[in-house]
Amino acid sequence: MSTVLDVQDLKVSFHTRNGVVRAVDGVSFKVEKGKTTGIVGESGSGKSVTCYSLLGLVPMPPGRIEGGSAKFGDVDLLKLSEKELQRIRGSRISMIFQDPMTSLNPWLRVGTQVAEPLRLHEGLSKSEAWKRAVEALREVGIPDPEKRIHQYPHEFSGGMRQRVMIAMALITRPELLIADEPTTALDVTIQKQVLDLIRDLQKRLGIAVVFITHDLAVVSEVCDYVNVMYAGRLVEASPVQELFARPRHAYTQALMRSIPALQRKGEPLYTIPGLPPDLANLPSGCAFRPRQTPERQALCLTDRQPPLVEVSPGHWAQDCPGCLIRD
């Protein structure tokens, strides 16, 4: 199995008036060819920033990449100039986004937008690129693509727009697709269709996918490997079956307890108490400590940040005495 993307010790921070916000603080993960790697976490846990920083999409300033490496093939994405990144974005690495309602340009025809990566990266003529765009739209299941390609985004429904986004992202046959909460803004039946579509295309084209989401149900459906992020760090990383069978970190367990479908009917829904910590002002020890139960809280590290350790083959978790549950 070949590694498409190898991120090591990525650190991204934002320099704001309220101090330095460490959005991503030493994150490492790998993405294998043909596999889906999930990044799960609450809002503000740094999962999106992780991926945006790989493609140079973090606004700089105030953002700054403080360290780490991201090996993609034989290049380090973090070391590339904007020009070099432009050649990779949309041709070898593509992205799809959360809200298909706002992610397509309302002033441009769908065809112009879907064909644009081909025109930019492969230098195709307009008619050639549009022909390929019609095929791409057909491939993602848009009926009557010859007609639809001339329409504008507002003439498409939400689910159809996300299909357009997927067609646009995959039209250049990239090696890696980064999907940033692609189903969050869709209703459940459409979610299922879009997930199936991504999985089908992934299987057929053999691409690697990084799947960002806060929805564990989606993770269990599509991911092969899961990274759980909290406060800009990985708290747990594991193959998907292993994670759902034996979650080791208190945060992962709390997340799973919060899945409504897994709770008994009639009982109040479980929520994790408290709020994610302020990233500009992190506690010195274990970041999850303030949200732990009192007896566990006493055990959490307060003097240093807990390191990731391999608790069982391929399964990593933060080694905090209060949060890590060993067998």
């Binding site: 999409l57 974005r89 949309g90 706002t102 992610s103 397509l104 340009n105 644009e116 990566p117 930019l120």
Partner: peptide, 13 residues
């Protein structure tokens, strides 16, 4: 707007 981010992610100069 979000669609400008989409354009950047496509590698548009």
């Amino acid at each position: 707007q979000d669609f400008i981010r989409t354009a950047r992610a496509k590698g548009v100069p």
